[in-house]
Each structure stands twice: as C-alpha cells, then as structure tokens.
Computed example of a mutant assay.
Amino acid sequence: MQLKLFQVDAFTSELFGGNPAAVVPLTQWLPDELMVRIAMENNLSETVFFVPEAHASAGDFRFRWFTPSAEVDLCGHASLAAAHVLWRHLDFPGQEIRIQSMSGPLSVTREGDGISLDFPARPGEPVALDPRWGAAMGAMPVAAISDRKLMLVYESREQVAALTPDMAALSEFDHLGVIATAPAEEAGFDFVSRFFAPKIGIPEDPATGAAHCTLIPYWAERLGTQTLAARQISPRGAVLRCVNRGDRVTITGQAVTYLEGKIYL
C-alpha cells in the first residue's frame, strides 16, 4: 500500500517558520495503531489524517490528529495544513471545508492569502496559583486559567521568552499542556504565547491553534477588543490573526508546503 504524504509549515508565510505538520489523505480509515505508528515515524508535533465523508464534493471531511504518542481531540496548525493541501495539491474546488471531529463540527475557509479556522472557544476558569507551576516553568505567573490546558499569564513578553520549563515536571501536571502568555509589547500585535506539552510527546510546540481557543477569549476580555493579532514566540515563530465570536473563535494564518512524498506500507 502507498499513501500520499505532505509536510506543511503552518501559521507562517515563509518556509522553516511556523509549525510543521504531516498531512496524510486517506480514502478510508487505517487501524488506529497504524496511524499512531505513522505519526511516531513522522516525528512532528502532529500528523493529520482525513477521509472524505459521503458529501465530500460539498466539502465534508472527517479529521483525526495524532502526536508522536497520542491522538488529540483538536489541532489548529494541522487543520490549516490539511486545508492547504486540499486546495493547493488535491484541487479541491470549494471555498469552505467542513470538518467532523472529536471536538464537533469545525470549518475552514479561504480568506485572501490566508486560511481561517472556525473553532470552539475554550475560555477556561481562573484558578489559584500553585507554587509548583512557577518552579516547573522557571518563573511564577501572575494569573492562571484552567481548561484541559493550563494557561499561565506573565507580566511581560521578556518573561515568556526567557522561560526554561522542566519538561519532566510539566509531564506530572494534570493538564494536557501548558500555555504561557503575556502582552505583546510590539506594534501591531496584542499578545504572545508559548506552548509546552511533554505529556503527549511535544516538548515545545512551535505554533498552536488549539491553545488560542483559550488565549483569544482571555485577551479579548482583558483588552476590550474582539479582533487580535498574536505571535507565538517559539524558536520557529508564528503569526495568528484572531477574532473572538462568543462561543466560537476564528484563527487565520498562512501555510507553505515543504515536501510531498509517499508512505510505503
């Protein structure tokens, strides 16, 4: 058996920026164990597999996302990468892709030279600070928000950039991953972030759409604006344009193809 494989840098307009995702188009699902092994072999933060639904010609697909060690219920950069592949390489003609997923219905649309994700908002709840978080991250935050991910708020971009997390300690947290965020302190941008998820095989994720489902509602309320520009200040860097829409968020970015190949099974 041969499968197509694409590797796409997402949330960037330049090769070697943003977050690389592997994209594997399928006509029918592979066994779960095999998809896990493919994701492990790809050794990227996420591999996305998609299968056309009965009405694929109208834009209906089912997406599944895998880290090198686990399936996850939502992934922004791999969804953006898959949409890029459908439009750029597989000649999908529509302007909207409708996605069935573990997180419910999602959609992706073309917006000029960008691709926009319609995802659920996940605002989380404020929680009391735990000294363990400061010890594990290398600096104590000033506030924390808890959802499936833990969001730690810092006073400055400089603090977030300087964090040196203890990955073993983070792996012991109850949360799927840890978001660190602060004001952008840069013209044209509103906030910055970094994301760490060693528990699911991702020490630091270069660009994380799903984390912005929590970041966007927080910063929209704090800054009093529904339209936001974000930087993820990982070593690769990423730019995300965001809109808060109540129980949904829109996350827009660009993508660049790095490679196209085949998997031999």
Rank of each mutant, 00 (worst) to 15 (best):
M1W: 10
L3F: 05
L3R: 00
K4G: 10
Q7S: 08
Q7K: 11
V8D: 02
V8T: 06
D9F: 01
D9L: 02
A10E: 01
A10N: 02
F11R: 03
T12H: 03
E14P: 03
E14L: 09
F16K: 10
G17Q: 07
P20I: 01
A21F: 04
A21R: 01
L26C: 07
E33P: 03
M35N: 02
M40K: 11
E41A: 10
N43C: 07
L44V: 05
V48A: 04
F49I: 04
V51D: 02
V51W: 03
V51E: 00
P52T: 06
P52M: 09
E53G: 13
A54Y: 07
G59D: 08
F61C: 03
R62C: 05
R62G: 02
R62M: 06
R64T: 01
S69N: 04
S69V: 12
A70T: 11
V72Y: 01
L74G: 02
L74W: 03
L74R: 03
G76Q: 01
G76N: 05
H77F: 02
A78R: 00
S79K: 09
L80G: 08
A81Q: 04
H89C: 14
H89S: 14
L90K: 04
D91P: 14
F92H: 14
P93N: 15
P93L: 15
Q95V: 06
E96L: 14
I99T: 04
R110W: 03
E111D: 15
G112H: 10
D113G: 12
G114Y: 09
I115V: 07
F119C: 06
A121I: 01
R122N: 06
P123Y: 07
P123D: 09
V127A: 05
L129F: 08
P131G: 09
G134E: 06
A135L: 12
A139E: 14
P141I: 03
P141H: 04
P141W: 06
V142N: 11
V142W: 10
A144P: 06
D147T: 13
D147R: 11
R148T: 13
K149A: 11
M151F: 09
Y154W: 07
R157T: 08
V160K: 07
A161D: 13
A162I: 08
A162S: 15
T164W: 07
T164G: 11
D166T: 02
M167Y: 15
A168R: 15
L170D: 00
S171A: 15
F173L: 12
G177T: 08
V178I: 13
A180Y: 10
A180E: 09
A182H: 05
A184S: 12
E185H: 12
E186S: 11
F189W: 08
F189I: 04
F189D: 01
F195M: 05
G201I: 09
E204W: 02
A207I: 12
T208A: 07
G209A: 06
A211I: 08
H212Y: 02
T214L: 13
A220K: 00
L223N: 13
Q226G: 13
Q226S: 15
L228P: 00
L228T: 07
A230N: 09
A230F: 12
Q232P: 12
A238H: 11
A238D: 10
R245M: 13
R245K: 15
R245C: 12
G246Q: 06
D247R: 13
R248K: 14
R248Y: 00
T250D: 11
T250A: 14
T252R: 15
T252C: 15
Q254C: 03
A255K: 03
I263Y: 00
I263S: 01
